[in-house]
Every structure is written in structure tokens, then in C-alpha cells.
């Protein structure tokens, strides 16, 4: 698709320096950061699919978190998918959710350290927050029609300033014309999914226990991105007999991080698999060590008895019988 809007890079080169790097000053941000779509206009036919990138132009600010609510006309279009594959965000408080009945897409995400705009030398614009895949419905009653996608007023951007200060947000809408002009074109998103053969990134699973949450029960944390079509979901299995794993009988359940383990004795083998939109899988495995497992009273009693016995033997040498 053609990018119809051009955006000025937020940095302007000033000088060279001894370490060989250019110094770039971002302008003091008073204009506010912009959320915009590419493409932001075009004509589509009923049955066609559009991949619309939601992008962030920081205008010199550093943004580290966002709550985004996007409205779309449900009588003209439906959401096929929301891809986070090329997103600048790496942590998601709320993964993208679609409420078709309200014509609403919403999510909350962020990036540690913040996103401060395009880095000089970067071959790409690298400012996509999410890729929204829309299908123009063939059930539309009045055609031609105008499908306007808007960033709702409830959306918020937050500065990476350590204070959680809200940034000024300037939203830009996209507007598409829906009209029947011939045969529907091919589905670009289906092609992208078909061509994605790369699994989500390698990741690890860690077990924690904290009095502050889950009543001090053991839970696991994990997170991984997928750089192509984006992460779809996670599945978790707790395998009771780690030495005899029967792949066919493993029960997988959809879940998210953090996840409270069913086996609080921590004797099960934990497997987490991450699926991308194309169905590629990356699996992480973790077997808690003996040290991490809660001490049972039996073992405590046994250890205590052994210590007592040793002490008796040691002292017995000094006792005249």
C-alpha cells in the first residue's frame, strides 16, 4: 500500500563529534505527539482487506506507554486481526482487544526506556504501534460509503519522564472510500501470514513467589515478541512426570503472564509455547530445581532428626558411661 502521508523525522543533525557520532537535538516538544494511520486514505471494495499501520510520531518527546482506543464503522468494516509484529511496544498491560459491537479496538502497551522517535541511520521509519487488519464487509447496505477510523479521545500517551506525565496527543483519522468497482483484489494480510515461517523469539520462563500477589502462591512470568506477523497467544502445560513425557497426552491451556501454577509443589515440568499469527510456535521449558520447591514437613522432620542424631553421637564421646 502507498503511504500517503509523509512525516518529518523528529531529529535534525547538527554536528560531528570525536567518537564519530552525530549529535542530534530533538526540538523541545510543545506541539504534542501524533498518532496517525498509514495509509490514511484510499478506495476499497467490499470483501477487500486493508492493513493499516497505527504509527506514533513523537515530535521530539520520549513516550513509554500508551492507552489507545480506535473507533471504526462496524457497518462498513470488520477487524480481521491486530498484529503486534512490527510494534515498537514490547510490554502489554492489555493485548489488543476488539469489541465489534461497539466498533472499538483497544490496548495498553509500552516500551521500557521509552520510544524517542526515529534513530538517525535507521533504514525504516520504525514507529508502528500496531497493524490493524480490516475487511470491508460485503453486507454494507449503502454504497459507496465512507469508512472513517478514528483515535478516540480516551486514548493517552505518557512521557518517559519518570513521573507518568501525560503527553499532549494529536490524533489523526484515516478515511477510506468503500465502493464496488470490480472484482476484489487479493488479500495482502493472508499473503503475509502465509509467508511468515519464523517463530516468535526465544524466551525463558521464571518461577516467582511474592507475598504481594496471588496469596504468595508460585507463579511464572514470561514474555516474547514475534517480529513478523506478531504474537497471537500463549499456551501452558504442567507435566507431572518430567522423566516420562508423553507428547501426545500433554494438556495445553491458553494463558497469559503472570500465571499461577496449578502444581504448587513445583515438581511438574512447565512448558510455555508462544504462537504467532501464522501458527509458528516457540516453546520454553522450565523444571524448578529442588531448591525452589517448598520444603515438606516430612523432609524437615527427617533433616532435623539427622542433625539431632549427629549431635548426640558427638556429645556421647564426652560422656563417661
Amino acid at each position: 500500500m502507498t503511504i500517503l502521508r509523509t512525516h518529518r523525522a523528529p531529529f535534525a543533525p547538527l554536528i560531528f563529534w570525536s567518537f564519530g557520532a552525530l549529535l542530534f537535538f530533538a526540538p523541545v516538544a510543545a506541539r504534542g505527539a501524533e498518532l496517525y494511520f498509514t495509509p490514511d486514505a484510499g478506495s476499497f471494495q467490499p470483501g477487500e482487506t486493508a492493513a493499516v499501520d497505527l504509527r506514533l510520531d513523537t515530535k521530539g518527546e520520549c513516550i513509554n506507554a500508551a492507552e489507545v482506543n480506535v473507533g471504526f464503522p462496524r457497518e462498513l468494516m470488520e477487524v480481521v486481526d491486530v498484529s503486534r509484529g512490527s510494534s515498537i511496544f514490547t510490554l502489554w498491560v492489555q493485548a489488543p482487544t476488539v469489541r465489534p459491537e461497539f466498533g472499538l479496538i483497544s490496548f495498553i502497551g509500552g516500551v521500557p526506556g521509552g520510544y524517542c522517535g526515529r534513530t538517525p541511520g535507521d533504514p525504516a521509519l520504525t514507529n508502528v504501534i500496531a497493524k490493524l487488519i480490516f475487511r470491508f464487509t460485503d453486507k454494507a447496505k449503502t454504497l459507496p460509503g465512507s469508512a472513517k477510523i478514528t483515535i478516540l479521545g480516551t486514548s493517552r500517551l505518557v512521557l518517559n519522564d519518570g513521573f507518568g506525565t501525560e503527553a499532549k496527543l494529536i490524533p489523526h483519522a484515516a478515511e477510506f472510500t468503500v465502493a464496488t468497482t470490480g472484482h476484489p483484489q487479493s488479500n495482502a494480510w493472508t499473503e503475509a501470514v502465509k509467508n511468515d515461517k519464523i517463530s516468535p523469539e526465544i524466551f525463558s520462563v521464571a518461577v516467582y513467589r511474592d507475598p504481594a500477589i496471588f496469596e504468595n502462591r508460585a507463579f511464572i512470568v514470561f514474555s516474547t515478541p514475534d517480529k513478523q506477523t506478531g504474537l497471537d497467544h500463549y499456551e501452558i502445560a504442567e507435566i507431572k512426570d518430567p522423566k516420562n513425557v508423553n507428547e501426545k497426552t500433554i494438556v495445553w491451556n491458553r494463558a497469559d503472564s503472570p500465571y499461577v501454577l496449578k502444581d504448587q509443589s513445583l515438581r511438574s515440568l512447565i512448558r510455555v509455547r508462544a504462537f504467532d499469527k501464522a501458527g509458528n510456535v516457540q516453546t520454553a521449558e522450565y523444571l524448578p530445581s529442588e531448591k525452589e520447591r517448598p520444603k515438606s514437613w516430612y523432609w524437615l522432620w527427617l533433616a532435623g532428626s539427622a542433625v539431632a542424631l549427629l549431635a548426640i553421637i558427638r556429645f556421647a564421646r564426652f560422656i563417661p558411661w
Binding site: L22, F24, G60, E61, C116, T119, P120
Partner: peptide, 20 residues
């Protein structure tokens, strides 16, 4: 907090790609 925001950003980071 609203009055304490730092708004100026300075970046020296630059990217070079070996292979382009």
C-alpha cells in the same frame, strides 16, 4: 508531577549498517 516533566531530549545515538 505535572509540573515536573522533562521535555527536552538529546540523543547522540546513530546507526550504521554494515551490508547496505
Amino acid at each position: 508531577s505535572g509540573a515536573l516533566a522533562q521535555t527536552t531530549v538529546t540523543s547522540t545515538v546513530r546507526i550504521t549498517i554494515c551490508g547496505d
